[in-house]
Nucleic acid binder design. Sequence first.
DNA 1: CGATTTTTTGAATCATATCAACGTACGTGG
DNA 2: CCACGTACGTTGATATGATTCAAAAAATCG
Lengths: 193, 193
Amino acid sequence: MASLLFDNFNKYSFITADEFVQIEQVLIKRFVKKKKNLLHEGDICRYLYFVEKGALRSYTIDKQGNEHVMQLAIEDYWIADLSSFITQTPGNLAIEVIEDCEVLLLPHPALEQLYDTIPSLGTFFRKLYQRAYVHLQARLHSSQSISAEERYLELMKQHPKISSRIPLIYIASYLGITAESLSRIRKHIHSKA
Amino acid sequence: MASLLFDNFNKYSFITADEFVQIEQVLIKRFVKKKKNLLHEGDICRYLYFVEKGALRSYTIDKQGNEHVMQLAIEDYWIADLSSFITQTPGNLAIEVIEDCEVLLLPHPALEQLYDTIPSLGTFFRKLYQRAYVHLQARLHSSQSISAEERYLELMKQHPKISSRIPLIYIASYLGITAESLSRIRKHIHSKA
DNA sequence: CGATTTTTTGAATCATATCAACGTACGTGG
DNA sequence: CCACGTACGTTGATATGATTCAAAAAATCG
């Protein structure tokens, strides 16, 4: 069983082949085209999305109608509006496809049931939520303590695949700056390299 | 039983008087003086802290040694380094007393045990973690979409008690700006009011 | 290929930081 | 109870990082 998802589970928890078969039974596979939304602002997030292929972003929309990227995801990443998923109430994130995708949908009610039969799945997702929290805190910290250029360099270092594949406008938005600024930052970096 | 903590539990969950007695048995009461630290960077956060009286802040320290306030807490607030508390591994938050405090300490192992006997306690803290997550996301969103002045006004509106009692330097740090900037923002607000 | 999206560049402007100085308040030890 | 020191707040002058708006160049897509 060569499966990206199986390996992903076993990165942070321990899932047997048998257990994985059970999980597979509730997964829904979707092929989604660029520019399509998996989730709209105000929707209840009914699935956790695991990316098998392609790229996506989640984003919020402010009062002026500007979008702000909250998360970027490529192969082997999970993406969702976590707080909406956990509470099953309307959230304020939207999720859009950046690059034609193959995603696996893990439905909320099915997951709740699987927790009973596969205890280590609870561990896995508890850890996942926790990483999300830590990551958010780290982002707030760096947005308050370092320059946009440093933030960009850090992102490049930690997620080189993301920064090379995702269009600059989304990376800029993720970093909390404009596309123009990031373009200038790139020029500046190249000029001294 | 007139208790701030009892009422706090019943804001987000339902705890009976009997259950509350059980909880009280594991709580540790501490009186802590201004400037003292309840937690240092790199410590394992072994307690959730409930503030009965006084004021505290949690903060991170960046590479240049500057502090950045992550949370402010007064009476009726919980404070902790959540990710360190949950994993019981060293964290990177410190917690310092701003105003002489009375705090209740809820130890990690005791809480784990109470979850078995008081199921609604699990609900309560799950919701607490979730609010922390949502709040963090909202902060990141507003730090990327609105000006420092708007952020300050929002804080004043949502937490008037905090903004009136806590020294300006900590509020500024919480907002991600310098004390000088916040001072000017205040002046600007008063001038047009 | 044309159409759209994405990236780059320039000039002007703005929000916030920085550095330095001064004012105020407060609490503690003498 | 006063005086002193430390913590906190304000103000001014200047610097800087990032935004805005406009336009052109480059890349991508059907």
